[in-house]
């Protein structure tokens, strides 16, 4: 799932450098979700997951980028987004994916909650180098 882009133009890259950028990321994902024809509930789930992951990249990763675009596989269309940061990485992924566990002051729902809200979820992290999370929500 490193390069999920199969439809249309290359994905746009959006910075996540300050909290105001989260509003922009949510708008970008909303537009893609509507273009893809996701149901209202699925749009809401995807935008919410994107908001959680973008905030993680900002707060825990010290900022990063979001790449987002439309994808297609097995005759289905979907929206994919990759959240990357070059922060400290996650030393214990199992722990980080547990509901309620947080290394900061959050609720500990960001990663585990975001995973439940999307169809595909892939996390790769290297301690000291950064974290990348790829998500896809498919149209039904």
């Amino acid at each position: 799932m490193t390069a999920p882009w199969t439809v249309d133009e290359e994905p746009r890259v959006h910075p996540v450098a300050r909290s105001g950028d989260l509003v922009h990321v949510r708008q970008v994902i909303r537009v893609l979700a509507q273009r893809c024809g996701l149901s209202l509930v699925d749009q809401t789930k995807l935008i919410t997951a994107a908001s959680e992951l973008a905030r993680n990249a900002l707060i825990y990763g010290g900022g990063g980028t979001v790449r987002a675009g439309l994808v297609e596989a097995n005759g289905r269309r979907g929206v994919a987004a990759v959240f990357e940061d070059s922060g400290p990485g996650i030393s214990d992924v199992g722990q980080a994916m547990t509901d309620g566990w947080t290394s900061g002051s959050g609720l500990g729902l960001g990663l585990s909650g975001a995973r439940r809200l999307v169809d595909d979820f892939e996390l790769s992290t290297v301690p000291g180098e950064g974290t990348a999370v790829t998500i896809v929500k498919w149209a039904r």
Partner: peptide, 14 residues
């Protein structure tokens, strides 16, 4: 609260 928001919040774990 919109229905889709309620569904999403519960699934998120909140």
């Amino acid at each position: 609260m919109r229905p889709a928001v309620a569904i999403t919040l519960v699934e998120l774990g909140l």
